[in-house]
Measured scan of single mutants.
Amino acid sequence: MQIFVKTLTGKTITLEVEPSDTIENVKAKIQDKEGIPPDQQRLIFAGKQLEDGRTLSDYNIQKESTLHLVLR
């Protein structure tokens, strides 16, 4: 499924993921596309910060959901 990741600069990254993918996994995909190390990434969905060990389905993230990427 496709999800979108919006950065603070207003750029939107499109990722191909599975509901069973972990947040860690998603961060690795963002690193592949954008070169941002996962340890600098914070992903936010519905106002919650997403934890590395959880999966997209844990957070009920469905196709075409938009996550927000904050760098630390």
Rank of each mutant, 00 (worst) to 15 (best):
H68Q: 04
K33V: 15
R54N: 07
Q41T: 12
H68P: 01
N25C: 02
G35W: 13
Q49S: 08
T9W: 14
K33I: 10
V5W: 01
E24T: 14
K33Q: 05
Q41I: 10
G47Q: 12
S57P: 05
K33A: 11
E16K: 12
P19M: 07
T55D: 11
T55C: 02
M1L: 07
F45D: 02
Q49W: 08
T55L: 15
G47A: 04
K27V: 03
I23C: 02
E24M: 05
L71Y: 11
I30Y: 03
L71S: 15
K11I: 15
I30L: 11
K48L: 11
G47R: 11
G35L: 04
T14Y: 14
D21W: 05
K27I: 03
Q41P: 01
Q2H: 09
D21S: 14
K29C: 03
L67H: 01
H68A: 13
D21K: 08
K63I: 11
E64H: 13
V70W: 12
Q31W: 10
T9R: 12
I61V: 10
A28F: 15
I61D: 00
I30Q: 00
L71N: 04
K48M: 04
D32T: 15
S57M: 04
P37E: 09
I3E: 00
S57W: 11
D21M: 05
Q2A: 14
K63G: 15
K6W: 07
G10C: 03
I30S: 01
S57R: 10
Q2D: 09
P37R: 09
G10Q: 06
P38G: 06
V70G: 11
I36R: 03
T9A: 04
Y59H: 15
A28W: 10
K11H: 04
L15A: 02
D58G: 05
D39L: 10
L71C: 03
T55F: 04
D52G: 04
E34T: 14
L43I: 08
D39K: 14
K6I: 14
R72I: 04
E34G: 07
P38Y: 11
Q49T: 05
L69R: 01
G10N: 07
T66G: 03
E18T: 06
E24H: 12
N25M: 14
K6C: 03
L71W: 04
D52S: 08
K6M: 10
V5G: 01
K27G: 01
T66V: 15
T7P: 12
G53Q: 09
I44N: 12
T14Q: 09
E34Y: 14
L8I: 08
K6A: 13
P37F: 12
P19Q: 06
T14L: 07
A28T: 15
K29D: 05
S65F: 07
V70R: 04
P38C: 02
N25V: 11
T9Q: 11
I3G: 00
V5C: 02
E64P: 03
I36P: 04
P37T: 09
L15D: 00
R54D: 04
V5Q: 00
V17K: 00
T22Y: 05
I23P: 04
I3Y: 01
I13T: 15
Q41H: 06
G47W: 08
L8G: 05
P38M: 12
L56S: 01
K63A: 05
M1T: 11
T14D: 13
L69W: 02
H68G: 12
L43H: 01
E34M: 12
L8Q: 14
Q62A: 05
K48I: 06
D39S: 08
L50F: 02
P19S: 09
R72C: 02
R72F: 04
G35D: 07
D21C: 02
R54G: 07
K63Y: 13
E64I: 10
D21H: 13
L67A: 02
D21A: 05
Q62Y: 11
L56E: 00
L71E: 08
K48W: 13
K6D: 14
T55E: 12
V26N: 00
L43Q: 00
Q31G: 05
E34D: 06
N60T: 09
R54V: 11
A28V: 12
Q2I: 07
L71D: 05
S65C: 02
T22H: 07
I3P: 00
I3K: 00
L43T: 01
E64L: 05
I13Q: 03
L15F: 10
Y59M: 06
I44T: 12
Y59C: 02
K33E: 14
T22N: 05
D52P: 09
K11A: 08
L67K: 01
S65P: 02
D32K: 09
Q41R: 02
A46F: 09
K48E: 13
G47M: 08
K27H: 03
S65H: 09
N25L: 10
D58H: 13
Q49F: 12
R42H: 15
H68D: 13
E18S: 13
D32V: 07
D58Q: 05
V5M: 03
K11F: 09
K29G: 10
L71M: 12
G53T: 09
I44S: 07
L67N: 01
F45G: 04
A28K: 04
I36S: 12
D39P: 12
A46N: 05
K6L: 09
R42L: 09
